[in-house]
Write a protein that binds this DNA or RNA. Structure first.
Length: 193
DNA sequence: ATGACTGACGCGTGGCACTC
DNA sequence: GAGTGCCACGCGTCAGTCAT
């Protein structure tokens, strides 16, 4: 099932130019036909529904962009910060497919996420060193909370990746064993013909 | 000032009705 | 059937608006 922009717009209750704007801002990978027209898949619609829900909760597009890899996996977030603060809480997750998680796009986004974390850590460290007196305890607590959550999310991601990798190796070994057993039979039949 | 739209513009394409 | 005109819809771009 695929939707053109007008259908997607009706379904999501969002103007077509807003969908184009989100696509550009969030660097969404929307497929096009030979005319260059957008085709939205069910997965695209689901991601856009999540984006819309986050927008309604008060998230900024930049924050949504950071959460996009998780959104694509079906994870849900709740905005727990004040207005203007993008502090989130993971409120559940749902596995939607290995293809998305292991896709090159997802890997690129993971790298961006990691880069963001490094920048945040560096900034935080520098701020602590140079502006120790200026930073209030309240602000520090919020940033630490956010960083702690981001780090936990990354750790979970890594753990899942290793699990999947281990499963893939086992699957591959099993397939090789099966192939080794079945191969001579086929060979025999071929010559019997 | 900044982020997030929103409207307008010009252009391309496809579908349909109409005429020859 | 082929050519033409009109309309709807899609595209990208850019300037403007509005809320924070």
């Amino acid at each position: 099932m695929r939707y053109i922009i007008s259908d997607a717009s009706k379904r999501l209750n969002v103007e077509p130019h807003v969908l184009r704007y989100w696509e550009e801002e969030l660097e969404l990978d929307i497929t096009r036909n030979e005319l260059g027209h957008r085709y939205y898949s069910e997965e695209d619609i689901m991601v856009l529904e999540n984006i819309k829900a986050l927008k309604d909760q008060g998230f900024q597009l930049k924050a949504i962009k950071m959460l996009l890899p998780s959104l694509e996996k079906g994870e849900e977030f709740t905005h727990i910060g004040n207005k203007g603060e993008d502090i989130v809480e993971n409120t559940g997750s749902e596995w939607v497919g290995q293809e998305i998680k292991d896709s090159p796009v997802a890997n690129i986004q993971d790298n961006k996420f990691q880069k963001f974390q490094e920048i945040m850590e560096d900034m935080f460290k520098k701020n602590l060193e140079s502006n120790n007196d200026i930073l209030t305890e309240d602000i520090s607590e919020k940033v630490i909370k956010q960083m702690d959550y981001l780090l936990r999310m990354q750790e979970e991601k890594e753990e899942q990746r290793f699990k999947k990798f281990d499963e893939t190796i086992r699957e591959f070994q099993k397939m090789r064993q099966e192939a080794a057993i079945s191969k001579p039979k086929k060979f025999k039949l071929f010559f019997l013909k």
